[in-house]
Structures are given as structure tokens and as C-alpha cells.
Write a protein that binds this DNA or RNA. Structure first.
Lengths: 209, 209
DNA sequence: AGTTGATAAGAGCCATGGGCTATCCAGTTC
DNA sequence: GAACTGGATAGCCCATGGCTCTTATCAACT
């Protein structure tokens, strides 16, 4: 069928971007949508409206909205990893100072951010049903733990591999638990208190071994 | 308007239940839906199909699906609290044994359960947008922490109030972080290892003070 | 400058979601 | 046993969701 009515309003102008730029724009818009409206409010239309593109673009550049969310997960994970690495490098060369910086960076922006938790929760909610998300989570968590184990080995060379592994898991869990509760409800304790608790646990792990 | 076509199939039989039974049935169905299909797959129709009732009942007994989810949050939180209290009572009268039981119960069924995490994640995802959920969360978390603080005081009477508070927050965070990661991915470490880590942290908190 | 082909827009399609309501039936009361 | 009360059903309405498809637009190439 031929379209009977010509468009009353001319079609909007647009600029042609490279695929990388477009994908990044969509990923950023997805992260903001997840943060502001949660997983339930993150629809194709909402993402594309925020990105300033039409809804057809999403399917054009990603294999559906689920794939876009998975890509956003990987991207946000990489951003967090970068922020932590930057904090480590800024701490200088002392192994203990570097370990400390790695742990405490979790309680400062941009990582200590309720919006980031909202994004993360959206990812967690998809791990159960989407194997791709589960794979990304395993990657991200494993990378973080490996980095922490490396810092621990340098800060306490006397530790055995088993001790390093347990300490890394334990410190990661403590950090995650404090971070989670801080993002959910700031009224219980402060980021500084959380940092003190983590530092205390870190010293215990180093002293014991 | 009168209905023009008489129903080809007679209407289904039904049984009349008390409001409490119906509400509990719907709450249980909601918890199972959240666990199996995540927050995204938990619709009015899915809940009611699982509960074996028609979709109109949900609106009849709850003020929309959000209210039902909030009720489910409160119910699941109460169940967890009950399980922990039971573990504490089963530990006898020794204060340290009771504290230990409270902490370690988090790594045994029914609390260590990926389905439970799925339910919890659904709740977290609503805290940001629904003040009622935030209020319930504050209640549940506060109650848990108060209970832990009480056990700590009895196990280590020499601790100051500030020390008790910090220890409770810290131990809760460690437990939550380990529990979270265990539910997300069992391959990283085992529940027994998690219990050992928590016990170690508990002993540290008790010895120091 | 004209041509070309991929990029982008935007309306539309079908499915699903939540809530509403007219209708029906099980248990109670007289 | 008959009328009554209110729990329970099932279908409907409208909004929104993801995705497709056609058409318009732009930038590179000849």
C-alpha cells in the first residue's frame, strides 16, 4: 500500500555518527535510565529518548534491548575498574598504600553512588535468567579479585596462596556489603566509618600473616 | 449493555477462602515468581496464574501489584528473621555460641538460596522509587542489626557501645557481601569457606575488645 | 555535481501489562 | 429451602513494550 498522507511535518534532521560513537551514546543513555528509573523503567523508548535518537537505532546497533543492557554492564564494570586502578596508581609505590587505596576507593565517588547501585541491581536481576549477564559478572568479579590478590601478595609476601585467596574474598565481601548498605541507606553509617572498618580489616589480614 | 453471547464454557468453580489465607497464597506466589522469573517476569497475570486464582483477586486483596510486592518483602524478611532466631535458640545459652549461630545461619538453607536473592534484588530495585519499600528496608535492616548488637553485648560485655555498633555493622556487611556473591555465583568459594571467614572476623571482634 | 548505499527516522504491528467491572456463585441467615 | 452478601471470575480497556518496515537523509565516491 502506498502511504496515502504525505508527512505533514518534515522528518527530523540527523547527523551520521560512527558506530562506536553511537554505541557509546546508547550505552550511556542506558546507564542513566537504569540509575534513574530502575530496570522496570528502562524501555527501548526511554533509552532512545534519552540518547536523542529514534527507537529504530537500538535494534540497528544492538541485538535487542537485552544485548544493550549487557553491553552497558560490561562498560560500567570497566569504568569502575578504571577508577580503582587510577586510585591505586595515585597512591604511589608503597604496596600497603596501594592496597589501601584500592579498598578505600570504593567509598568515594564515582563508585560510592546510589545511581551506580541502581545500575548494578538491574544487572544482578538479569543474571539469573540471562547466561550472558552471568558470564559478564563472573568476568568482572574475577578481575577485581585477581587485582586485589596481586596487591595483597605485594603488601604481605609472607602470605600463602590460600591465605591470599581467603583475604581477597573476605575483603571484597566486606567492601561490597558496606558499599551496598551505604548506597541503599546513608543514615546508618558514614562513608568514613566504612573506610575505617575496611582499613581495620585490611590491617588484621596483613598483621596476622 | 447486556452481554450478547452467552459463555460457551461454564465459569470455573471456586472455593471461598479467608482473607488471610488468600493473602498468604498471593504472597507465596509472588515470592516464587520473583525467584523464578525475576522482577521483570513478575506480572499480575503470572502471580495469579501461579496462585491459581483469577487476576481480579490481586486488586481485590491488595492495592495493586506494588503493594503486593511490598507485602511479600515484609513477609520474606519476617521468615528470614524467624530462621535466624531459631538458629540462635538452637545454639543453647552460651553467648558466644549464640552469636556464632546467628552469623553462620546466613550460609545455610533457607537463607542461603539463590531464589531468595532474586526476591531480595527485586525489592532493592524498588527502594529507589518507592518510599514504602525504603521504609520496610530500614526496618528490616535495623532489626537485624539491633539483634546482632544485643548478641555482641552479651558475648563481650567489655565492649563499648561504639565498638558494638561498629562490629555489628562490619559483621553484617561481611555476611551480606559473602551471601550475595555466593547466591550469584557458587563457583568462587563454598558456603563452608564463607562460614570460616565470618567466624574468623567474629573472633577478631571479640578478642580485640 | 551526480550517484549510491548505508544510516537514521518514525510510524505501525502484535503482544503483554495493570486495572476495572459486570456477572456469577459459595456460604450465611432467616 | 429461599433470599442475601460479598468473595471470585473472566473478559475488556487502554497504555506501554519490543521490534519491524518503509521512507527520508546524509556522506562518501566517481
Amino acid at each position: 500500500m502506498a502511504k496515502p498522507a504525505p508527512p505533514a511535518r518534515p522528518r527530523a534532521r540527523f547527523v551520521r555518527e560512527t558506530p562506536d560513537v553511537r554505541r557509546q551514546t546508547l550505552i550511556n543513555a542506558t546507564a542513566r535510565c537504569l540509575a534513574e528509573k530502575g530496570a522496570g523503567g528502562t524501555s527501548v523508548r526511554a533509552i532512545c529518548a534519552r540518547a536523542g535518537v529514534s527507537s529504530g537505532l537500538l535494534t540497528h546497533y544492538f541485538d535487542g534491548v537485552d544485548a544493550l543492557i549487557a553491553a552497558t554492564y560490561a562498560d560500567v564494570g570497566a569504568k569502575v575498574s578504571t577508577a580503582i586502578s587510577a586510585a591505586i596508581d595515585a597512591a604511589g609505590n608503597d604496596p600497603k598504600a596501594r592496597l589501601r587505596a584500592c579498598l578505600l576507593a570504593n567509598f568515594r565517588p564515582p563508585i560510592l553512588d546510589p545511581d551506580l547501585l541502581a545500575t548494578w541491581i538491574a544487572f544482578w536481576s538479569l543474571i539469573k535468567t540471562d547466561p550472558r549477564m552471568a558470564a559478564i559478572h563472573t568476568d568482572v568479579y574475577g578481575e577485581t579479585r585477581t587485582q586485589l590478590e596481586d596487591l595483597l601478595r605485594r603488601a604481605a609476601p609472607a602470605m600463602t596462596e590460600a591465605q591470599v585467596r581467603v583475604a581477597a574474598i573476605s575483603l571484597t565481601a566486606l567492601v561490597d556489603g558496606l558499599w551496598l548498605e551505604l548506597c541503599l541507606d546513608r543514615s546508618t553509617f558514614t562513608p568514613l566509618e566504612a573506610q575505617d572498618m575496611v582499613e581495620e580489616a585490611m590491617n588484621q589480614a596483613l598483621i596476622e600473616n
